[in-house]
Design a protein around this nucleic acid. Structure first.
Lengths: 155, 155
DNA sequence: TATTGTTATACTCTATAACTATA
DNA sequence: TATAGTTATAGAGTATAACAATA
């Protein structure tokens, strides 16, 4: 849960109220929750992320999927291979650009993705129950700004 | 960066402003950044987390380390084995409870941990540069509340 | 008996390099 | 040549189960 960086900042720079270490701690918390929920459905964290990424896009190219998941193309090939072997997704060749493949969920994959997603959401909602609506809205805005900054930096 | 859950909520529940999916997206962003920085120092994300967790505690028992990193004890054994083989950490037996081991950083491990930490902090600071001080303070408070809720739920 | 940790085993995950096929 | 993707290889990460040693 706690990777220690927030304390490191205190020790090294004397800024106990810094946002950066709080974000790191929060991120660990959220993704460990994500991994736990996945495990509850017999999924690894990576498989859970794969399913959720595909389901909201209906179908995705391998190429784009790699960027979304931050994976080298060969790493993604393996991940998709295992999910396909397990009957969760299918690969379909693009008719126009025959180099490309579309990844889609099977019915079973879609069911699993939805269950996983709703569990994650339920557990997150329990955690943020006591945050005021005003703070929640403000926080969503801050996150959007951070994500925008990251997109700009990555270009 | 984007695991897709934030869009899933839109699609499934029609709540484009929900905080939960924003937190998931933010968490992916932060930990991918963490993985990138680690790679820049020849570390995997897990090794980077290990080093940062140890450095702020001076020394940690395997037992507690497993809880902090959310790992089974055998998984941690392997992670620590590889870091030890690489000269980054040492294991020392506790004199009083001879079942337990203390994990400590070597000089090289400490140097690497500090460099990694400062890089992560620098990149995070660049991302949150445009968030107002007021929002930053508020966000730190929200994160604290979320972490408290999570601790209570885990007990 | 309970706790702390390791080892054995079998996977999954990941990157680099070399490759195929299509554009 | 460039792009989309796979395969080969090697190593890292992980959990379960069985084990040893200490409390």
């Amino acid at each position: 849960m706690d990777c220690g960086l927030e304390d490191a900042v205190d020790v090294v720079e004397g800024r106990p109220e810094a946002l950066a270490p709080a974000l790191v701690a929060l991120s660990h918390l959220v993704l460990h929750l994500f991994a736990d929920v996945g495990r509850g459905h017999g999924l690894t964290q990576q498989q859970a992320e794969l399913l959720c990424t595909v389901i909201v896009r209906d179908r995705v190219r391998m190429n784009e999927l790699g960027k979304l998941l931050h994976l080298e193309k060969s790493s993604l090939s393996g991940l998709v291979d295992r999910a396909e072997r397990r009957g969760l997704i299918t690969r379909t060749r693009d008719a126009k650009d025959r180099r490309a493949y579309w990844v889609e969920l099977t019915d079973e994959g879609a069911r699993l993705a939805l269950r996983t997603h709703s569990d994650v959401t339920a557990r997150l909602d329990r955690l943020i129950r006591h945050v005021s609506p005003d703070d929640q809205a403000r926080l969503v805005g801050v996150v959007d700004r951070i994500r925008t900054a990251e997109s700009a930096a990555t270009e």
